[in-house]
Write a protein that binds this DNA or RNA. Structure first.
Lengths: 145, 145
DNA sequence: TATAATTAAATTGTGCACAATTTAATTTAA
DNA sequence: TTAAATTAAATTGTGCACAATTTAATTATA
């Protein structure tokens, strides 16, 4: 095997690259299912938080999703225009914007609930690999750089 | 533990979400190092292919990076304007655009070679976890959905 | 060999991501 | 208590991603 001081720069020796490619690949596999309920992937994970929390402010939502207001503000305006959430300044502290789920947003949950099962058929990992991957990814996320 | 038919829709039960979050998190960790050589992450992985292949057409580059011409065309124009690659239609088949590395592009490699080692200090995985992650990610990428 | 089908890039339009800045509200401290 | 510091969203600007369409070149076929 020919060695070079540049080996560390080869695409095949990167861990970050397959992570980046895989992330996009999986989002692409979600697309046909998400199209049926009219959500993008980012809107879908935002709705996941809403289905669980019912009401959060932008900062909390951002902490859940690792996203900032620059991404969330336009996204939440879109979810509002679709009628799935409302956006209102908090009475207690008007700096906070409270995002709350609507009845239509709740109804969407019943359509969305099939998606995880449909997606399961699109991956080829063993249950063990899934658990390993999950653990490793959250280990990376947990480390404050 | 309270169970619900909606458990599959919880963010914490997703595999895709930490993948998506991790991918962005790691790209963010590259940013300070990439800033020093004036490349974005996508430009960096494109240059990795160029450093290895010297000359490729857009289609081949897209296959390496899992990206299409919609993403690559503007990106390659930027790399061209920075002087790291040239873009020329192929003589044999004018549908093909040949992207070739320049001398400046080659020189950049010597600056970039430090980056993988600098990044290594920013992750917290054991070597075994790294190997596991690598294998699982390429298994996902390999499966034609 | 014309015509149809295919192929490769480029283009168009939408939706993130995110750094940096701005605006407005609240909290802290002199 | 008022001025400074902090905080939360929104805004601005850049750079992807990617679906869908267009343009131009090449190949296959009737």
């Amino acid at each position: 095997m020919k060695q070079s001081k540049y080996d560390a720069l080869k695409l095949e020796n990167q861990l970050c690259f397959p992570l980046y490619a895989c992330s996009r690949e999986i989002v692409k596999r979600y697309k046909p299912f998400l199209d049926e309920i009219g959500l993008t992937y980012t809107q879908y994970i935002a709705m996941m938080v809403m289905w669980e929390r019912k009401s959060v402010n932008v900062k909390e939502l951002g902490e859940c999703l690792y996203l900032d207001s620059g991404t969330l503000t336009p996204l939440l305006k879109k979810l509002e225009s679709k009628g799935y959430v409302t956006r209102m300044r908090s009475d207690k502290d008007e700096r906070n914007l409270v995002v709350a789920i609507t009845e239509d947003g709740e109804k969407l949950k019943d359509k969305a609930v099939e998606i995880p099962y449909q997606i399961a058929g699109c991956t080829n990992l063993t249950p063990e690999e899934g658990v390993q991957l999950y653990g490793i990814l959250y280990k990376i996320l947990g480390k404050t750089p």
